[in-house]
Nucleic acid binder design. Structure first.
Lengths: 165, 165
DNA sequence: CGCTTTCTTCAGAAACTTGTGAAGTTAAGG
DNA sequence: CCTTAACTTCACAAGTTTCTGAAGAAAGCG
C-alpha cells in the first residue's frame, strides 16, 4: 500500500481516481485542467485546497492552476476563499453549489431558446421548419421548469438520506 | 428581402439562424461541423437534406459533411436513410429522437457514476472525501431516474399541445 | 461488365488551444 | 515604505484539432 508519510491516505489511489474522474469530465466537454483541479478538490477530505497544494499534486504550474480556477469559479463549480491574515487563497467545492451549477445549464438553455425563437420568427411560424423549431423550443421550456422542480425534490430526498447540512 | 430564385425562403435569414444556433451548440461542447450540419437540418422544411445540399449550403467539402454526419449518427442526433434506387443518402433529424439523445447523457451519467463508485471505494466510504463522493453519486443516480420520468411527462405534454405524431 | 455518381478515407496544411516560464500586480508583515 | 509571498497576466512553443483535396470503395445503371 502506498501511504505517503503522515497523510493517512493512499496517494496513488487518490491520484488514480482524480485522473480517471477528470477524464470523464473532459470527455463530457470540460477543459482538461479545470477537470483535473475539480477532481482533486472533490477527492480532498476538506473539500478545499490551496493553489500550491494543487500545483504540487497535479504537477502543473501556478499559471495553470490560476487558469483552471478562474474557469471553475466562473462556472460556479468552486468558490474561492481568502484565509484571513494570509495571502493564501483556498478553493472549495461546496457540496450543493456544484450540482446546482451542473444543472444550471439554465444559462445554456436560455440561449438555445433565444436562438430557436429567432429561428421560428425568421423562418416563419407557419412553415414546416418553423413548426419543428417551435416544438423544440417548447421542449426546452418544458425542461427548464422540470429541472427546477427536480432540484427541489433532490433537496428533500437528500435531507432524508444524508441528514440536514 | 433576399429570396433565392424559386426557393420561397429567405436564404440569408436561414443562414443567419443556422450559424447562430450552431454557435450555441459549439459553445455547449459540440464540434463545429456537426453543429452546423445539425442546425441546417433543423432549419430545412423537410427536416432532411442530401450530402450535396449540405455541402453547398454550408460551403464545405464532401469530406467535412461525411465526418459531421458520422458524428451526428453516432450520437443519435440524426438518422441516415438511403433513397431507394439511388446511391444518394439523406440525413434526417427526427423530431423526438434527437432530444431523447440530448437527455441520453445517460451513457455519460453511467460513466460518471462508475468513476465515483471507484472513488468511494478507493478513498474509503468512511472518510470525509468518500462521504462527499457517495453523496454526489447518489445525486447522479437520482437524476438518472428523474430524467426518464421527465421524458415520459414530456411525451404526454407534447401530445396534448401538438397532437399525435 | 464497365462507367458514373456518391460517399468515405487519408495525409497533410492551417488554425486553434493549451500549458509554461517570466514578468507584473497585489497585499501582508516587518 | 520596503520586502516578500501569493496569485495573475502575457507571449510563445508545443501539441491538437479540423478541414481540405485527392485517391479509393461501393453501388446503381446502361
Amino acid at each position: 500500500m502506498t501511504e505517503s508519510a503522515g497523510s493517512g491516505r493512499d496517494a496513488e489511489a487518490v491520484s488514480r481516481f482524480v485522473e480517471s474522474f477528470a477524464a470523464q469530465l473532459v470527455e463530457a466537454g470540460m477543459p482538461r485542467m479545470p477537470a483535473r483541479v475539480f477532481a482533486a478538490l472533490l477527492s480532498s477530505d476538506e473539500g478545499a485546497r490551496t493553489s500550491a497544494e494543487l500545483g504540487e499534486q497535479l504537477r502543473i504550474s501556478p499559471a495553470a492552476v490560476s487558469g483552471a480556477v478562474r474557469y471553475l469559479a466562473q462556472t460556479h463549480m468552486v468558490s474561492r476563499e481568502r484565509e484571513p491574515g494570509s495571502r493564501r487563497e483556498r478553493y472549495r467545492v461546496h457540496g450543493d453549489q456544484w450540482y446546482e451549477a451542473l444543472t444550471n445549464r439554465e444559462t445554456v438553455l436560455k440561449r438555445w431558446e433565444g436562438a430557436l425563437r429567432e429561428g421560428v420568427t425568421s423562418l416563419g411560424a407557419d412553415t414546416p421548419a418553423g413548426r419543428r423549431m417551435a416544438e423544440t423550443l417548447a421542449f426546452f421550456e418544458f425542461v427548464e421548469v422540470e429541472i427546477v422542480q427536480m432540484m427541489e425534490r433532490w433537496r428533500v430526498h437528500r435531507e432524508k438520506t444524508f441528514g440536514p447540512e
